[in-house]
Each structure stands twice: as structure tokens, then as C-alpha cells.
Amino acid sequence: MKARMIITWIILLIYLIIVIKKGLVEKKQRKWVYLVAALTVCITLCVVFEIPVHIAMEFLNNKVGGITKRMVEK
């Protein structure tokens, strides 16, 4: 397990405790806090299970970058 995930989880836990305990958000807005926290956990899980997220960027580089390359290169 990588150090950056442990750091992320600790920061996220402290964040959630502070936000909920201190009442920094109204009840209505709490769903957004949970949503972004869940998203962060999902991203860290991508690191744990070594999901190749970079494939998306490679696809973008091939397709969109290809357009630029055709226009720019000699």
C-alpha cells in the first residue's frame, strides 16, 4: 500500500470529523461532502487495485492529440 493513500485517508478522516462535528455544513449540504469524500476514496482505490486510469489519457492523447499532430507537424 502506498504512503500517499494512507496520508489521504488520514486527512479525509480528520476532515470529515471536523466538518460534521463542528457543523461547518448544513444538513442539506452534507450530501455534497459525502459525495466528494466518496469520490476521493474511489480514486485511492484505483491506486490500491492498480486500475490503469492512464488508459483514458492515452486514448485522449491519441485521438485529440492526433488532430493537433496532423495540423502542426511537418
Binding site: I11, T40, M57, N61, V64, G66
Partner: peptide, 29 residues
Amino acid sequence: ILPVSLILGHLSILLFKNNINQIDFSFYT
């Protein structure tokens, strides 16, 4: 802002396999 920046930080590592990939994105994509 905190969780969003954490997400973006992780994505900046995950989305680019290496330096070349990032440069390719900046220059051409």
C-alpha cells in the same frame, strides 16, 4: 476544497503514466 484538491492531486499522478505522457498532453492534446 480539500477533498477536491486531493482528487485532483491523485488524478495528476494516475492519469499520466510518465513525464512523456504529460508532455504529450500539454503539447498536442
